[in-house]
Structure formats: structure tokens, C-alpha cells
Design a protein around this nucleic acid. Structure first.
Length: 494
DNA sequence: CGCAATTTCAG
DNA sequence: TGAAATTGC
């Protein structure tokens, strides 16, 4: 019987790139043949946090990687299966002792999956090496020295992709494909959602650092301008088409000659905040479905299917909210401030549990990043205890950040023909004005489903009172001790 | 990266 | 008197 050839497997999860990929680097370092593997896992595809838009993004990323891999006569093995079963199949043809992937700070379901893989690897004498993901540290108890370590990681050199002749050839992989249900990688050609893939990611990165970043701080809060002046790199960072380190280096490289250092620094400071939040999630994974501050577990809100549906579909009768929701549903993107506003509307003004909006938004955000998502939703919901309560006024935000109502005009076309002030507050129109301007509220566009003023008062009263609750206050101390960055190292603008 | 009511202050 | 700063929710 002939001996099987050794094979090192790179399990690509949310690190869908070849450059600066430590897992690939480590696999190549074994000197063995290397297989790049992506497993479309049924449990994850069915998970309520994910949407077809995410799976399309991943497929686009893989197709793009395959184009890059042609020059090495290789491709990615992409299968519909589960990880242990896949490795079992591969062991029929290869001697497998090495598995490489990044350390995933993910959902509870992927955490449990990884625990199973740990046992599987142990039982099958496989070494599973997980590399650090974008500077997020596993197993730390507090944040002493964290910023320094993170910065050092970002400033360390990028890892080159240099596979020589180690990657399995296309022919070898096509042979393996007969063992599996190979994933159909075809995706819709035209969608308003950002396309996945390193090639796309680099286009966004290049245009951002070439000129778009100049308006970064000016546009960041405005829903229309932000689409252009923000980097739009978030989906590529979330799915690992780019590493944070690559983006950090790109920013650093243009900084000396940049005339807009403030805008550039505002951007890189957000790269740091991104890591900060993911680190928090890594250290407090129960945040996915319960408030980090246990004092808020007693807060019970009654669920209104009607309110939630209206919010999801952009039919609340509050134009700025409806514009945001419809834009998000269609494009998968919304700027940060508007995300905060729709969460505040859902949790404060509709008085619905943050968990419900977290699930819906994770599906809609093409850049859904578990580590950021749950902490942000909880913070905006005002259930951390340590942050000031921020209840957004969607009308005020409309006047302030969509002054000419062009964003609303685009996404709520039934209002587009009205004067700007009527677009912001259609419910303030008299019956006479409605007649005159040819619109009937409740027919052409809904009346507001809630009383903005009254509901704001209710949320404010209850949540401010809860800040004095002994358990909330006790939890504040615990959270601050565990998650706050050391003051001397907080200079995040750096 | 809140909001709105209240107080202060310049002219 | 209205803008700017302060404060309490």
C-alpha cells in the first residue's frame, strides 16, 4: 500500500485573502503540500444572523481568489459540508497533521463549532494552529498594555504570499472535488450591494487613500456624503479581503505627503476602535444575546410584531428612519451615525428589545462583524451602564444631516415631490396642504406609528432611573475594570 | 457619536 | 434678544 502524501490545510474562515495571511504563511512553512479550503457550513448558512448577501459576498471573494491563484496553477476547494467531515474525506487521499486558521472572534455557534473542531483535531492527532486576528488577543483578563501591543502588531511587517510549488494543483483539487458537494459559486451579476473580493477591496482602498478620505470627517455623519467620503472598507475587513494591518500600512504610507492628516488620523483611529470592540467581545462573548451589564437583564420590553415589521420595511411614518431602513435593505450599507439612530429608534422610541434589532441588522449589514455589532447595538440601546444615554431625535437628525432631504427623496420617493420641510415632517401637513401637494397621509405614506415626544420621555425616564440601580452600578465597576483602556495609553488618535 | 430645558452672556 | 454654555434626564 502506498503511503499518503502529507498535506497542510488552510481553513479559510473570515480571512479571504492571500496577502498578509498568517494561516497561509504558517501552512507553507511546514514545507508540505498546502490546500486552501472553504467550507460552506449548513448551520451557519441557516443562522438567523446571516443573509444570502453574505454568502454571495463570500462566493465573490472566492472566485476572485481563484483568479489570482491561476498563476500558481491552483484554486480553492469550496464545498458544502462541515469541517470535520471534510477533513475526514480528505484523509482518504492525504496524510493530514496540520490545520491552520485565524482565531475567530465570532458568534456563539461558531465558538461551539470551534470547540468541536478542537476535540476532533485532538482525537485525530491533528495540530490546529490558530493565528492572531488583526491584533485581537485571546485569553487576556484586562486591557493593561493593550494599545501598545495592538499598535506593535499593526506596525509589524506584512506577510508576503509566496507559495512556490506547494499549493495543490487545479488537477489535484478537481480530483478531490469528486468526493464532495462542490459549492455553486455563481452569484447575481448586478446588485446595489458592494461586491466581495480582494480586487474590489483594493479598488476601494486605492480611491479612498487617493482622494476620497479628504472629506472623511466632513461627510462621516451625513448619510449621502458618507457613501463617498467614508472608506467603505468595512465589508472587506469583516470578511478579511484585507487585513487591518494592510490598511494601516496603506494609511501610514500616504501620511507624510498628505495635506489632510486630520482626516487620515480620524480614519486610522477608527481602525483602533474597531479592534477595541472586537477585543471586548472576545473577552465577553455572552454579549451576543444578553446585556453586558447584568443590571439590565431585568428590563423587560413587550414585543410588537407590528412595530418591528414597520421598522424593518421602512414604513414607520418617520421619513429619516424609513429612508435609512430602505437604503440599508437594498445596499447593505449605512453610515455610523444613521446606524446609531435606527437602533435608538427601535430600542427607545419603539421600546423593543435590542436583541431583535441586532439579529435583523446583522442580516442587512454586508459588513456584519460580530465583535463590533453586539457591543454597538447594546451601547446605542443604552444598556451598558457605563456610557451616557443617547436617544436620537430622527427629525432633528434629518434637518441636520440631510438638510436638503436628498437622501430621503432618494429612498422614500413617495415624498420626493414635496417641499423640504414637508419631507422632514410630512405629518405636520394640514389636510389642505396634503390636498394642495397631492399626497394623502395614511394612504400614500404612513402616519407616524408612534408619538415621538411621548415615547422619548418614557425611554428617557426608565433608562435614567435604571442607572441608579445597585446591580447596574456594581456591574459598571466590573465592566470598567475589565474593558477600559488604560488612560495613559488611550491616545487613540495617535 | 444626544437632546432639550435652563442659565449665562454679549451687545 | 438670541447665541453659547451648562445641566439634568
Amino acid at each position: 500500500m502506498q503511503t499518503k502524501e502529507p498535506l497542510a490545510i488552510v481553513w479559510l474562515k473570515r480571512d479571504l485573502r492571500l496577502q498578509d495571511n498568517e494561516a497561509i504563511f504558517n501552512a507553507l512553512n511546514t514545507g508540505k503540500k498546502v490546500l486552501l479550503l472553504y467550507v460552506f457550513e449548513e448551520f451557519l448558512i441557516k443562522d438567523p444572523h446571516y443573509d444570502i448577501r453574505h454568502w454571495n459576498f463570500i462566493k465573490e471573494s472566492i472566485i476572485d481568489l481563484n483568479k489570482e491563484l491561476i498563476q500558481y496553477n491552483s484554486k480553492i476547494l469550496a464545498v458544502n459540508s462541515e469541517v470535520a467531515a471534510t477533513i475526514n474525506q480528505l484523509m482518504q487521499h492525504y496524510h493530514i497533521q496540520d490545520l491552520f486558521s485565524h482565531q475567530e472572534t465570532g458568534l456563539l455557534c461558531t465558538y461551539h463549532r470551534d470547540q468541536k473542531i478542537t476535540r476532533y483535531c485532538h482525537n485525530n492527532l491533528i495540530n490546529w494552529t490558530e493565528n492572531i486576528w488583526n491584533g485581537v488577543l485571546r485569553g487576556v483578563q484586562n486591557r493593561r498594555g493593550w494599545v501598545g501591543q495592538w499598535t506593535a502588531y499593526m506596525e509589524s511587517p506584512l506577510i508576503d504570499f509566496n507559495p512556490k510549488n506547494q499549493l495543490l494543483t487545479i488537477k489535484e483539487i478537481e480530483h478531490l472535488e469528486t468526493l464532495f458537494t462542490v459549492t455553486d459559486l455563481s452569484t447575481p451579476i448586478i446588485t446595489p450591494i458592494q461586491k466581495g473580493g480582494v480586487t474590489e477591496a483594493l479598488k476601494y482602498q486605492n480611491t479612498f487613500f487617493k482622494e476620497r478620505y479628504i472629506n472623511y470627517t466632513k461627510g462621516i455623519s451625513k448619510p449621502e456624503l458618507a457613501q463617498e467620503s467614508c472608506s467603505r472598507l468595512s465589508p472587506y475587513l469583516a470578511w478579511g479581503n484585507l487585513s487591518t494591518r494592510q490598511v494601516w500600512h496603506a494609511a501610514k504610507n500616504i501620511r507624510p505627503l498628505s495635506k489632510n492628516k486630520k482626516d487620515l488620523d480620524a480614519f486610522t483611529s477608527r481602525l483602533k476602535w474597531q479592534a477595541h470592540f472586537i477585543q471586548k467581545f472576545e473577552m465577553e462573548h455572552t454579549m451576543e444575546d444578553s446585556s453586558i451589564n447584568k443590571g439590565y437583564h431585568m428590563l423587560k420590553k413587550s414585543i410588537s410584531v407590528k412595530y418591528q415589521k414597520a421598522w424593518q420595511t421602512g414604513q414607520t411614518g418617520v421619513p429619516m428612519i424609513d429612508a435609512c431602513m430602505r437604503c440599508l435593505n437594498e445596499t447593505g450599507y449605512l453610515n455610523f451615525r444613521m446606524r446609531a439612530m435606527i437602533v435608538s429608534f427601535f430600542t427607545h422610541l419603539l421600546w423593543q428589545p435590542w436583541q431583535d434589532c441586532a439579529v435583523y441588522l446583522s442580516k442587512m449589514f454586508i459588513d456584519f462583524e460580530p465583535g463590533i455589532h453586539f457591543a454597538q447595538v447594546q451601547m446605542q440601546a443604552g444598556e451598558t451602564g457605563i456610557n451616557t444615554l443617547r436617544i436620537y431625535n430622527p427629525v432633528k437628525n434629518g434637518y441636520e444631516f440631510d438638510t436638503n432631504a436628498n437622501f430621503i427623496r432618494k429612498w422614500v420617493p413617495e415624498l420626493a415631490h414635496l417641499q423640504t420641510k414637508h419631507i422632514h415632517e410630512p405629518y405636520a401637513m394640514t389636510p389642505l396642504e396634503q390636498n394642495l401637494f397631492n399626497i394623502k397621509l395614511g394612504v400614500d405614506y404612513p402616519e407616524p406609528i408612534i408619538d415621538l415626544k411621548e415615547n422619548r420621555k418614557r425611554a428617557s425616564k426608565i433608562l435614567w432611573e435604571m442607572k441608579n440601580d445597585p446591580l447596574v452600578m456594581q456591574e459598571n465597576d466590573r465592566i470598567l475594570a475589565k474593558h477600559t483602556l488604560n488612560k495613559s495609553t488611550l491616545n487613540i488618535a495617535g
